[in-house]
Design a protein around this nucleic acid. Structure first.
Length: 882
RNA sequence: GGGAUUAUAGCUCAGUUGGCUAGAGCGCCACGUUGACAUCGUGGAGGUCGUUGGUUCGAGCCCAAUUAAUCCCACCA
């Protein structure tokens, strides 16, 4: 062991991780370089909101992207991972309002300008916090290119797009029924509304005829809206109501006169077959009313209270209070004819969970159909691939039924809509820069629209706005379109779909070729993590306890693409244990090296060395292919298995003989192989566990000045493909396992060393001439003696039967004949069952004729092996029974 | 109402174009301080891959039906 050797006995991630990250960042290695003629690998990071803390969703996002980025960096691709943050208009504004409320302040009280100042202060404070936390995860992104959705460049892109779409007629302003959140006091888009089933009532109310006749009974879930009714609709085919069509009804409480109209939309089977029309507060009523020219009467204020039009008795009441009063009055006056329990879904604001009110309002909309069409085609034609591909269906399903997007928000924090209204001539001016005068009348009395844009309007431009668009920057030309977009399935609609149509519309090219979708993180009980449940697991805490590498590894190992995952401390613990295993294997190798090992001499290699090198080749191939195929879980599993089961459990143990007691020549080869395999393992593992691997890599003799992150990805080496040695090792390992089983079943003390007399199958004797140390080290053998096939052993022995022959161990008084017979009988049974299974397969003509020849051969081989073992076992049994 | 997903060891989950004598981690049982690691080692028990049909030489994997659970979308008052 060298003097300066210094590795702790267990892996202690906490101390070193941040230091390593700082070194990486300082070195400039994250900064992307454009290399002409070389295809770059680019990811734009889904920008986390500046509202707060890193959560598990970010942790998954970041881990997946960082794995891909580090992999491609090591492959030698020019690699850009562009980070940034999102202003998160409504989420941030709510948080600031909340903060102000605690100080006794209101938005309106301090005014727009002061509010925006506070918002920018917030951004400075918390925007930096989350990017620091991304660093804790090990995210190797290019901070020199960090962007913010509201920085000058991104804002310019937003204006540019808005103006362009307006000029194309795709952005328009209009009065429509929108989803209104009375608490956030803003319009919402359809996907910002979450629906859930609620137990409610269906109230049946009589609307008498104008002349005092019976009229009709209507059913409603929202009786308070009757104050805004302007008609009643029935189905034109409905015989019950034919006589009323065109007649007038009297609206109870309000006393207004309502026309009865006929519209095919009305389902005669539902309720009473007569529907009250509240065009200002229901999207269907709005549509029907437009067809029949019914009046539109809005009875609710922006804060969810009833307005003047609702009537003096109701003005100022909340919708709920109004409902109670309306029902009471209807009851008193005899109009309420029935009340039914009823379950229906009610929409709530995805931000504050207040019930949204559909109401008519003048807003800005983006017409979707013309944008959606090419975006659907692009995915259909394969310009973009979804992984797993089923999410393409989700995408199609949404895009094919898409409705216009309400893009204006009655908020202050965000991109202010670049529209100005002339207060003299009422012209609407949409422009990139604030105009001085009205182009029509020359007036200088211009007023900018008060609203801001939906946060996702700017996110939709992220893949190109961050690269400098609308300028044709070198970055934009080189890095666009980007490569992979990794995100959770919960934001396919919010973000992925919108980036796709925006990229096509403004860049003429799709924004990325691959969409890698992951699931959401759940708690140990499988529940969604949420603030209200308080079941969120803090990734930073896990980093503190287990290290960032363990957290990262636990988020990909054993996780199928697109599948939800549960976090549990067991998972992190398992990953931490693996990190420790790698640490200790490295520690062992480093302890036993003496400077930089010499080259591997293929001619001097022994079987286990050829075996591990050959197996390494396969591991490299599999990990590489899995990573290229976006199967991160399988890639992680492959490294895990190779490093732990093959390298640690077998190879390191097998190398000890040479390392401790070998000739100088043998020692040198053992060192060289250990060094080479360890180096490859570290590099294969680096994308998953960057800190650990970097720490160890720098300790490898000869690599003190190198970075694992920047070292080349391991390649398969044809010269190290040794099929025969792999087979040999399989045989040896099988024999060793067989001996271990026998020893444990007979309860042989581990310290009790037994002579092993091995009767090999034909062809194996000469391959086992140097195997003694392996049996000594791993099978508790005192010695290994190879017997001729016909040798008679006089001593009382137990027998372990393996693929390559029979191992006899004189265990003296330990041998319990009865036990031994029982054990062998069981073994014989297993073998017989297996042989008959194989026979059955081969007896099947179809199998022999149609299955691949290699498979048929393998089956025959199995029979031969199993028969050989069975023969040995039965022979042995005969001897014992004598 | 439409679409999708899941159902594999006690628990949590892998299983890439059908070839599996079905794996891992945790848990369980037994043994273990042999010069990297008890955050470890060795061995073991434990599954008719939800159910029923079908395609195929061959099905955990493909098809159909069925049961159960979950999720998303949808304007039925």
């Amino acid at each position: 062991m060298s003097q300066e050797f210094q590795m702790e006995k267990t892996f202690q991630p906490q101390e070193k991780e941040q230091q390593i990250y700082q070194e990486w960042e300082r070195s400039g290695a994250f900064t992307a370089q454009r290399v002409e003629g070389k295809k770059p690998y680019t990811i734009v990071m889904p920008p986390p909101n500046i509202t707060g803390q890193l959560h598990m969703g970010h942790a998954v996002d970041v881990t997946i992207q960082d794995i891909l980025i580090r992999f491609h960096r090591m492959l030698g691709d020019p690699t850009l991972w562009l980070p940034g943050t999102d202003h998160a208009s409504i989420a941030t504004e709510n948080r600031i309002v909340e903060q102000m409320r605690k100080e006794g302040l209101t938005k309106e009280g301090i005014g727009r300008e002061a509010f925006l100042e506070r918002a920018w202060e917030w951004k400075e404070k918390y925007g930096g916090q989350i990017t620091q936390q991304l660093r804790r995860m090990g995210a190797s992104c290019d901070w020199s290119r960090e962007r913010f959705t509201m920085d000058a460049g991104c804002s310019r892109a937003v204006s540019e797009v808005f103006v362009k779409l307006f000029e194309q007629g795709l952005i328009y302003r209009g009065e429509r029924i929108i989803n209104w959140c009375p608490v956030c006091r803003t319009a919402l888009s359809d996907i910002e509304v979450e629906y859930e089933e609620q137990h409610a009532h269906l109230w049946y109310i009589r609307y008498p005829a104008e002349d005092g006749g019976e009229g009709v009974v209507v059913a409603t879930t929202r009786p308070e809206t009757m104050l805004g009714d302007t008609g009643v609709a029935v189905n034109p085919e409905d015989k019950r109501y034919l006589h009323l069509i065109g007649k007038k009804l009297m609206l109870p409480l309000a006393g207004r006169v309502l026309p009865v109209v006929a519209d095919a939309y009305v389902d005669p089977e539902f309720g009473t077959g007569a529907v009250k029309m509240t065009p200002a507060h229901d999207p269907n009523d709005f549509e029907i009313s437009k067809r029949h020219n019914l009046a539109i009467l809005r009875v609710m204020n922006d804060d969810g209270t009833m307005n003047e039009a609702a009537g003096a008795d109701y003005q100022g009441l909340s919708a709920m209070d109004c409902r109670k009063l309306v029902l009471q009055r209807l009851k008193e006056q005899g109009y309420l004819v029935n009340t039914q329990d009823y379950t229906h879904s009610v929409g709530s604001c995805s931000r504050c969970h207040t019930t949204v009110e559909p109401l008519i309002s003048e807003q800005w909309f983006l017409e979707m159909a013309p944008l959606a069409k090419p975006a659907i085609e692009a995915v259909r034609e394969g310009q973009i691939t979804f992984y797993p591909d089923r999410f393409a269906k989700t995408y199609f399903n949404w895009m094919e039924n898409i409705r216009d997007w309400c893009i204006s928000r009655q908020l202050w924090w965000g991109h202010r809509i670049p529209a100005w209204y002339c207060q003299t001539c009422e012209k609407v001016i949409v422009a990139r820069e604030a105009p001085d005068t009205c182009p029509d009348c020359g007036s200088i009395r211009l007023h900018q629209d008060e609203d801001v844009l939906d946060t996702w309007f700017s996110s939709a431009l992220w893949p190109f706005s961050t690269l400098g668009w609308p300028d044709q920057t070198e970055d934009l030309q080189y890095f666009y379109p980007t490569s992979t977009l990794a995100t959770g399935y919960d934001i396919i609609f919010f973000w992925v779909a919108r980036m796709i149509f925006s990229g096509i519309a403004h860049m003429g090219q799709v924004p990325f070729d691959t969409v890698l979708i992951h699931g959401i993180v759940r708690d140990e009980q499988g529940r969604k993590m949420s603030k209200s449940l308080g079941n969120g697991v803090d990734p930073l805490e896990l980093i503190e306890t287990y290290g960032a590498d363990a957290l990262r590894f636990s988020l990909v190992l054993g996780v199928a693409p697109g599948a939800d995952m549960r976090v549990s401390s067991e998972r992190s613990e398992a990953a931490r244990n693996f990190a420790n295993k790698v640490w200790n294997a490295s520690r062992f190798v480093l302890m036993n090296l003496d400077g930089v090992p010499g080259a591997i001499e293929p001619k001097l290699l022994r079987t286990p060395e050829k075996w591990i090198l050959s197996r390494l080749n396969q591991a490299i191939r599999q990990v590489t292919n899995h990573l290229k195929g976006n199967d991160l879980g399988l890639a992680a599993q492959t490294i895990y298995d190779f490093a732990w089961n093959e390298f640690c459990d077998w190879f390191i143990e097998l190398s000890k003989g040479d390392l401790f007691d070998g000739t100088p020549e043998r020692k040198a080869q053992a060192r060289a192989v250990l060094y080479q395999v360890l180096s490859a393992v570290l590099r294969l593992l680096h994308p998953f566990m960057p800190f650990l691997t970097e720490m160890i890599y720098k300790q490898l003799p000869g690599h003190e000045q190198d970075s694992c992150m920047l070292s080349p990805w391991p390649l398969e080496n044809e010269a190290y493909s040794f099929k025969d040695e792999e087979q040999q090792m399989e045989g040896v390992m099988d024999m060793i396992r067989a001996i271990r089983v026998v020893r444990q079943e007979l309860k042989v003390q581990p310290g009790h060393r037994a002579r092993v007399l091995l009767k090999p199958k034909p062809g194996w004797a000469e391959r086992l001439t140097t195997a003694e140390p392996y049996f000594q080290r791993l099978a508790g053998a005192a010695s290994l003696q190879i017997l001729p096939p016909d040798a008679q052993v006089a001593e009382k022995t137990v027998s372990a039967v393996g693929l390559i022959g029979e191992a006899l161990m004189p265990l003296g008084e330990l041998v319990d004949i009865e036990k031994e017979i029982a054990r062998l009988e069981k073994e014989a049974q297993t073998l017989e069952a297996e042989i008959s299974r194989s026979r059955g397969k081969l007896a099947n003509e179809g199998f022999v004729k149609k299955a691949p020849p290699a498979l048929v051969e393998a089956e025959k081989e199995k029979i031969a092996q199993n028969e050989g073992m069975l023969e040995t076992v039965t022979h042995r049994l005969r001897e014992l029974r004598q």
